[in-house]
Structures are given as C-alpha cells and as structure tokens.
Design a protein around this nucleic acid. Sequence first.
DNA 1: GATTATGTGTTTGTATACAAGAAATGCAAG
DNA 2: CTTGCATTTCTTGTATACAAACACATAATC
Lengths: 252, 252
Amino acid sequence: MNEQLQPLKKHTRTAKSRTGTQDDIVYAHIFDAILEQRLAPGTKLSEEALGEIFGVSRTIIRRALSRLAHEGVVLLRPNRGAVVASPSVDEARQIFYARRLVERAITELAVEHATAEQLAELRQMVTDERDCFDRGDRGAGIRLSGEFHLKLAEAAKNAPLVSFQRSLVSQTSLIIAQYEGGSRSHCSYDEHNELIDAIEARDADKAVQLMMHHMDHIDSKLNLDEDTASDDLHAVFSHLLLGKKKLRPANS
Amino acid sequence: MNEQLQPLKKHTRTAKSRTGTQDDIVYAHIFDAILEQRLAPGTKLSEEALGEIFGVSRTIIRRALSRLAHEGVVLLRPNRGAVVASPSVDEARQIFYARRLVERAITELAVEHATAEQLAELRQMVTDERDCFDRGDRGAGIRLSGEFHLKLAEAAKNAPLVSFQRSLVSQTSLIIAQYEGGSRSHCSYDEHNELIDAIEARDADKAVQLMMHHMDHIDSKLNLDEDTASDDLHAVFSHLLLGKKKLRPANS
DNA sequence: GATTATGTGTTTGTATACAAGAAATGCAAG
DNA sequence: CTTGCATTTCTTGTATACAAACACATAATC
C-alpha cells in the first residue's frame, strides 16, 4: 500500500527516510519545499493541485496541511485555503524568545541524559550538515541544521519539549530562509561540534553558554534588528503578488 | 450553518462559548468530557459512535481527534483508533518539568506586558473558578483553573508559548483528574489571586516565586512521588477493563 | 465615470461510499 | 480442555461526490 504510489523521488530524497503513511510523505515533501524556499512565503497551497502532484486525494493533503499549520509553517485560513507562512518580525522575535528558553532547558537535560549513541548520532549529523553546505545545498543545510537541534531535544528525554522544539525549529528555519543576512554559513557546524564536546564532558554551564552564544549567532545573521524595512515590505506585499494579473508600476 | 446542528446543550454549556465551526464544538465537548472524567483514561473513542452522538460525519470527528491527539489528551494509534490518553508517571513528570519552565517565562512576560483589561479578566476567571468549586463542580473547576493559566499565557504576548501552554495545561488537567490526591481544593484560587496581585504590582521576582510555589503546590497534591504503585496499576489495567465482559475477581 | 449589484467560476467544507486492516469469534485438531 | 487457524465482522484509512462559500468579472445604475 505504501508502494502503490511513489511519484515522489524528487531531488536527493531529502524527505524523511521513514517510509510512513502517505500523509507523512506528503507532509515531509511540502515541509522540505518550504524550508528550501522552493515555495516562497505567501504562496497559496491549493489542495487539488497538491493532490494531483502527489497522486493522492485531497483528504491526505488536507491532513498534511493541518499538521503543517499546527507547526506554524503554513497558515490555514477558514474557507480561504492554506498559504505558506510568512512570519512577521514580531513573530520571529517571539519564536526566538521561546527557542532560547527551550534550548537552554534542552541543553541542561541533554548534559544529564544523552547517551553515547546519541552523541555519536549528533556528530554524524554535523558531518552531514557540513557536507550539505560544502556542496552548496543551502536548503538541505538549513534543514539538517534544524534536525540537529531536534535530535538534541530527543536526547533530553522530555516528550513535550521535543514536540515544542519541532514546531520552533520549523518556524526558525522558515525565518532563516526568509530573513537571511549576507553571510552564507548559516548554522555554523563548528558551534554544533563544540556543543557536543561540552555535553560529552557533562559540563552543563559551558554547554548552556555555548548554546546561548549559538542562538545569539543565529539571530545576529538575520535582518531582524531595526533593519527590517526591506524584508518586511517583501512580506507585506507577497500576498498581493499571488494574483495572476500584472501590476502596473507603482511609481508612475 | 452553525445553527443547523445544536444537539449539544449538555450540562452547563461548559464548552467554549466561541460558536466556531462544528469541529471546534466537537473538539471542545470531547475535551471537556475528558477533563471532567466523564471519559475515563483508556476509553476507546470510536469515530462512528462519536459521529452519531454529535450528529456529524466521521470527517469532523476525525479532525477533532487529530487536534486532541496533538495536544496529548488523546492517543491516536495507526489503524487501531483513538483512546483517551493515560499519562504514565514518567510522562507526568516530563509535563510538569516543561510547565515549570514555561510558567516561569510566562510570568516574567506577563509582568511586563499584561494590560489592565487582561488583569481584570484574570480576576473574573478566579471568581468563576471559586464558584465552580464552591458549587461542587470539580470537573469545571479543574478546567477553569487551566483556563486561568492559559489566559495568563495570552497576557505574556508570545504566540508559540501560548500554543505550548495550551497543550501542557490540557495534559496537566488530565493528570490532575487521574492522579488526584486526597485533598479537595485542587488549584487554590487564593494562589491565583496573589499571583495577579504581584503581576499588577509589576513585581517580577515575587510573581515568579509565587508561581513556582503554586506549581509545587499542585504536584504535591498528586500521588506521583514514589507513591505511584496503586495509580500506576490502575493505569496499566485500565484498558483491560474496557471490554464489556465482566472480569472475575483477581484475588481468588 | 465611479460604485454597487449580480452572476459565474473556482476552491474549500462536509458527507458518504468503498477498500484495507485488525480484532473477535468459531471451528477443528491435538 | 487447550491451542492454533480460518472466517467473519467491525473499525479505520482513503477517495470521491456534493454543497456552500468566496473571488473575480461583468454589467447596470446613480
């Protein structure tokens, strides 16, 4: 039953390898497409169109969109369909506040609970992440970088925090994709490696300090601080550009 | 369209007064039923049965169950239907850990951002809550007490935290309903009032201190600490009791 | 000429029919 | 009497058909 539809062999099979039910697959593919900016913020996600693309009925699409909406990467307006979320600067700040809070707790818990296997997996993920950035696959890099933080949350052994972290990481990735600054190395894997070192050494203070510095680093690369005008304008007008009618020059 | 089905005038109209779409109504009613323990942990939630009860199709029920599963009050097993969640002691501990974390942040933010109107609303909610407990409506009391904490989260003006808090409060209410200790005053409204006082005085340290004490108070009333044997057994066997066939006495 | 009303087309919301999977029951064999 | 297997029934998963709401365009009136 999972085999009867596999028209989903896009790019490098970035969608999660877990061969779950169809809506998992659809969910993962839309998710990846959003993070890799193949779907721009504000883009309308028509149920029927997506259904045709993935070869499934609207029922499945609807479930996937519902999940994405719950994680905040898709906005689901009643009777008006789904669009790719375009977080405002204020929303981005709220997300970053929550993330600092959660990352601090996760780091402390991971120092306490992370097993050797988990640390090894984390190291592997950092390697994969570096490979992605090296080969220029920015979208996959952002996604893997997010998955690193999610894996860390799993090492903390607190299910509610994992769930929350998943939502925060998704939205953060969206924000990074949207508000990226000039610098290209986004989530420096060096910092990730140092972090694993501190956790492996069971040095909670240092690990937390590194994590907080890492957070600072991430949002210092974004154009959130004061400098929000240009990106904000883009977000503000993105929904107007959806209609197919051509706009006349605004300054005439 | 919202008016065409109203066979939902149960008890005291506790379901949220927002007259949203059908699945909101169904969601709220099942949610309330679980919190007020009219649905015991482990109870199977048949889609068709619920559909008949609420006079809607399985489609709506399915959406509602999906939401409830996302909040953690319902467990959704693939191909095997939904059951009312029965959090283990360990899961309860994880939830409480996360709640302390979030409540601390929310309190700090509320001190900073809460408006006079919001504080007034909070006071009103405490009054309502006291009325419920006074008139012996324990289920509604637990629910209102949870809604107080949710309202406080809204005053903190951080959307991701509100969303997370909603999930945590739901699960906490379920835990309280499941692991209640002997004492009857569950979420002492006095503590809620003191908390509002401190927030109104913009005294962050005192507010946080009160909130943490409040959290201590809540879980000191539960049978989580060491004393978990009896309740654990109940949780372990609860799903066996679902079948309608009568069990023979276990100790014979 | 601008603004409002109306009609058409497209998209979402809901219900239902059908297919696939799991639990339960009954039968048969040891 | 117990145990293993097959059939049967019930429940969930998915697709599709229908109804309602919205967006857009056209036309009519002020």
